[in-house]
Every structure is written in structure tokens, then in C-alpha cells.
């Protein structure tokens, strides 16, 4: 095990997969000569050259579609969309083609692409650079959606996503690229389905993914130290498909659920997890499940208002106390 940063984990996965297979390429804005906005491809241009580490024009629909077309003939593109806000421009290609081509061709053609893109609110980036779009990708059949919460997952999910024959969207976070964490020194592959128990507990389950896992863990510490409540934290690293069995198992153990998401509440991870709880283990519940979500607003520029729009660990603590009738 070595402690490395999130961007270093991504860079290592790119490097290993490109070394293994000459048909693995990466493409995106500023990923080559400039080394990548988040350094996920730093140094790879010099190592693999401009045919395989492709600096694209600012044409998200165009280069995403180009990557999909290349995948039809055996190429394995890792497409970086610099900000998930720009991914709206690539939706036609991702949804209409990548997600559907195997189905509508009767199994003749598939689009084994990886699209990596960071979303989330960072520091005063304003309404059009602060989107949280995982809910949009989750709603379309034929697409896998995963979201790493630490460097180990970032490395292992990218390694498996490149080799999987399905199109995979990897939802990253603007604020997490410098996060440190342990990553195995040997090759390591994450499953693309399932969830992880980030903290074992017995009294309530906190469901998080990506950055909200860290809010859940911080809240669990506070709940334990100040209130004597033993919270379990489930890391939903796969958002599509969601881990029905894992959700059921934890709720059946704790009998309480709080779902924590950075996005607006409507039609999101929280509502979907609640629906699964209803379908799978409603009679295990001791209290109605609760969502902790962003305010239903575009993200404001002003720093104070921006902070108010997004949940914190304290919101999670408050939600648990209220659910338990302690506040």
C-alpha cells in the first residue's frame, strides 16, 4: 500500500492500461501537452504521443462521439470531459448512441468507452460550473455510472471500466483530486457494481457516494462521540445499477436510513434509494427514511450563499437526531 493523491491514482490507472493495450487512448481538453486540468493524464503525452493522448478542440459532442465511433472498431477511449457541466453538450452521443447501440443493433455493436468528468460545487465557480449531474446519467438504460470516494476506488474503478464492454460514466469531484489515500501497490480492480461498508454501525445507516461519503463519515464520528449513536456508512460507489442487496442488508440491520447527496433532491440518488428501501425492506424500517440534499437552487456565486446551498456533516447529524426523536 502507498498513500497517493486521487489524481495520482487516476494517472497510474491511465498509464498502466495504456501500457498494456495500444488501443487504449485518452482524449479531452488540455489533457496532453498541458497535462490535464486535474493532472489525471500528467506526463502521458510525452510517454504515448499525440495519437494516443489527444488534445481535443472544445467540442464536447464532437469528441465524445468520435470516441464512441473509435470504440466501434476496437479502440478503448478514456474521454475526459473537463467539467460535468460541459457534458450536457455530449448527451446526444452518450445517451442516443453509446447507451443504445448494442441494443438497437441486436448485439452487433457495442461502445466500450469510459467518460470521466468532475462535477460538484467547488469554490465560487457559479451556476454553470457547479452542476451535480449523476442523477441524469443514472436514469438511462445501457449506461454504467460509478463514482469514486477515494484514491483506491478512483484507481480500481477506472482499471475495470476501461476493460468492461459497457459504456461507463465515472463521476468525479472537483474538490477531491488532491485527496490522499491508500492504494494497493499491485494491480487492483474494483467491481463496477455493488457498495462498500465504509463504517460499520448498528443504529442508523448513512448512505453516501463520492464526496458525501466523507460528510457521512464525519457525521458518524460526531454521532458516536457526542451522542452515543453508532451509525453505519454505506458507500454507493455504483450509482447505476444501485446495489439493492447492499441497501437492503444494511437497512435490515439498522432499521433507519438517511441518504446524503450533494445534488438537488428531485429525481436523485436519495429518491431512488428510498424507492429501493420501499420495495425491498419497507417493514424493516423503524422510522421514515430521510434525505439530506442540496437546496433546490442554481449554485450562487457568493461564498456564504454557496455554502448554504450544499449540505454539510452537521446537516447529517441533525437529520439523524431528528429521525431518532432526539432533537
Amino acid at each position: 500500500m502507498s498513500e497517493i493523491m486521487f489524481w495520482e491514482a487516476l494517472r497510474r490507472a491511465h498509464d498502466e492500461e495504456m501500457t498494456r493495450d495500444p488501443l487504449v487512448i485518452c482524449m479531452g481538453e488540455d489533457i496532453g501537452v498541458a497535462g490535464g486540468t486535474y493532472k489525471a493524464t500528467n506526463g502521458l503525452y510525452d510517454k504515448f504521443g499525440e495519437e494516443r493522448v489527444i488534445d481535443t478542440p472544445i467540442s464536447e459532442g464532437g469528441y465524445t462521439g468520435l470516441g464512441i465511433g473509435a470504440s466501434f472498431v476496437g479502440v478503448r477511449p478514456i474521454i475526459e470531459i473537463m467539467s460535468v457541466n460541459f457534458a450536457w453538450l455530449a448527451m446526444d452521443q452518450i445517451f442516443n448512441t453509446a447507451a443504445k447501440v448494442r441494443y438497437m443493433s441486436g448485439g452487433q455493436l457495442e461502445a466500450p468507452i469510459v467518460v470521466r468528468s468532475p462535477g460538484g460545487t467547488a469554490h465560487q465557480l457559479g451556476a454553470q460550473h457547479s452542476a451535480r449531474m449523476e442523477k441524469v446519467f443514472m436514469g438511462v438504460a445501457g449506461l454504467r455510472v460509478v463514482t469514486p470516494s477515494n484514491p483506491r476506488q478512483a484507481y480500481g474503478l477506472l482499471k475495470s471500466a476501461v476493460r468492461c464492454n459497457d459504456p461507463v460514466f465515472i463521476n468525479e469531484h472537483e474538490l477531491m483530486y488532491n485527496m490522499k489515500g491508500e492504494v494497493p501497490d499491485e494491480e487492483y480492480f474494483m467491481p463496477l457494481e455493488g457498495s462498500e461498508v465504509a463504517r460499520e454501525g448498528a443504529d442508523v445507516t448513512l448512505f453516501g457516494y463520492n464526496i458525501s461519503v466523507h460528510w457521512c463519515l464525519a457525521a458518524a464520528e460526531t454521532l458516536a462521540s457526542k451522542h452515543g449513536i453508532n451509525a453505519e456508512v454505506i458507500d454507493l460507489f455504483s450509482l447505476s445499477p444501485l446495489d439493492r442487496d447492499g441497501i437492503k442488508a444494511s437497512v435490515s440491520k439498522t432499521h433507519r436510513a438517511v441518504i446524503v447527496e450533494e445534488a438537488e433532491p428531485a429525481v436523485g440518488v436519495g429518491s431512488e434509494v428510498m424507492a429501493i428501501i420501499n420495495e425491498e425492506c419497507f417493514f424493516e424500517l423503524d422510522a421514515p427514511p430521510v434525505r439530506v440534499s442540496a437546496e433546490n437552487v442554481p449554485i450562487p456565486y457568493n461564498h456564504k450563499l454557496e455554502k448554504m446551498a450544499i449540505p454539510t456533516a452537521q446537516h447529517v447529524v441533525d437529520a439523524v437526531l431528528k429521525q431518532l426523536g432526539l432533537s
Binding site: 495500444p22 488501443l23 487512448i25 495519437e51 494516443r52 459532442g61 464532437g62 469528441y63 465524445t64 462521439g65 468520435l66 470516441g67 464512441i68 465511433g69 473509435a70 470504440s71 466501434f72 472498431v73 476496437g74 479502440v75 446526444d92 452521443q93 442516443n96 448512441t97 447501440v101 443493433s105 452487433q108 455493436l109
Partner: peptide, 29 residues
């Protein structure tokens, strides 16, 4: 696909980048 007919697509301009991508794959290989 056996005949390398890579499809009919229902968005009028959708194939523009797909075709460029197939060409990129040809060039790489």
C-alpha cells in the same frame, strides 16, 4: 457489422463524429 455497415442512426447529424471516430480507429490500427 460483418459487412462493416456500421449502422443507421436516427439523429440527423449523429453519425458525423462516429464516422470520424471509426476513421481514427483505422488510423491507429
Amino acid at each position: 457489422t460483418e459487412q462493416r455497415f456500421m449502422g443507421g442512426y436516427a439523429l440527423v447529424g449523429g453519425p458525423f463524429p462516429l464516422a470520424a471516430g471509426i476513421a481514427k480507429g483505422i488510423k491507429l490500427k
